[in-house]
Design a protein around this nucleic acid. Structure first.
Lengths: 219, 219
DNA sequence: GTGTGTGAAAAACTTCACAGCT
DNA sequence: AGCTGTGAAGTTTTTCACACAC
């Protein structure tokens, strides 16, 4: 077969555009909360350090998003982006690994406003299992599959040590998890049907060093 | 001026390649520690879910990195990547913001092995200033400029609340910081001479949701 | 045979520039 | 005037395919 038949609707947003949609959303929420009801691509670009054309191109993947001569209506755009990203509903999330990072995530207040809620937490360490964090009690990781099925969880955060990450992820996939946010410093190799987003703390610093060193020798 | 005169040496690694260098480095360290002394682009690719051609192209930016018919010598490649990234020496780092995330970073053991060390921590909350975390005592953020100059710090981690992030970053830049790892859910707008890498927790989940939802409707 | 390095082709992404709407 | 949407141009990045080395 030469090609996949394609929905005629949207020409598939590039990967980078999807990331920026999240940034637009955040900025739009802020602007809206400050009482602004319309915004232009130029202004949005200034706030996010992007060229206006980039903003318009990204938003054009949403279909009709703005009005020529007027700009974008903040509330409408917020709704449109949320529907596109799939965050126009609540997403329960499982947390696996409740060490330092996992516990920080349990206490992190930034998830709820975006519709994400950690509804179950797991660890393999007997000293950690059974401890309470807010409303949640850490369960043994052996119960993760049950919990995922029972609570209809589709997303998981992996915050276990590096050497346990791949096995943990395999297990989650087997239990039906469709997306993993990975904090372990390992590249997870998983079926292409499972989405993975990596958050790597040390690598961020390495990228920074490269840029800083480059900055000096080059212009 | 039509064009910047360029060092004839390396054709400037693409941004994505630099990110992958960090991944290669991590994987090479693991392989080396398991006793392997040579590795092929095919194998490295399998471990990181990349095509062999991509691996070779990335490594070719380092200059002569491997040997035809043989592969890459792990230790040599490790050294070469470290020199390229600039991580062949120690980098002291300042941490600004010692709330939940900041404290988790203070306890995170993953920085030291890569040559990064948090050597000073700051906060503006009087309840947090003065508390000890390991060998460090949290200082008042007003002392950050002094500390940066005195300790020759060039990199900072920003882990303050969103509404304080831009002002904090401005302050750090004024104090001479050259690179910022930003955990606050805000896009920092700074001079182009300052490198910024963003780590956004909620955005990672949003990207995941988009991928998961897309996965179903499309193939 | 296995394996790298690389020019060239292909694909993906960004930026431009302008038609058209308010 | 100001603004969006978009085809086309321009740029960057990935992938291919093969010459050459062990």
């Amino acid at each position: 077969m030469p090609e996949q038949t394609e929905f005629p609707i949207s020409p598939v947003p590039p990967k980078g555009a999807v990331q920026r949609l999240s940034l637009y959303l955040r900025e739009l929420r802020k602007s809206a909360s400050e009482g602004r009801d319309r915004i232009s691509s130029t202004r949005l670009g200034k706030l996010l350090d992007l060229k206006p054309a980039q903003v318009r191109k990204d938003l054009s993947y949403l279909g009709q998003a703005g009005q020529p001569g007027v700009g974008y209506v903040c509330q409408d755009l917020i709704g449109l982006i949320q529907r596109t990203l799939g965050t126009d509903r609540k997403w329960p999330v499982a947390l696996v690994g409740c060490g330092k990072i996992g516990q920080a995530l349990l206490g992190y207040g930034g998830f709820d406003p975006q519709g994400f809620q950690i509804v179950a937490a797991f660890d393999s360490d007997p000293d950690i299992v059974g401890t309470a964090h807010g409303a949640l009690t850490v369960q043994d990781v052996d119960q993760v599959a049950d919990s995922i099925r029972r609570q209809g969880i589709r997303l998981a955060i992996v915050a276990v040590p590096a050497d346990a990450a791949q096995a943990t992820a395999d297990r989650l996939v087997l239990a039906g998890i469709e997306g993993i946010l990975n904090f372990a410093p390992v590249v997870l190799v998983l079926p292409k049907t499972v989405r993975v987003v990596a958050v790597d703390l040390a690598i961020g610093l390495e990228q920074l060093v490269f840029g800083v060193v480059r900055q000096l020798e080059n212009g």
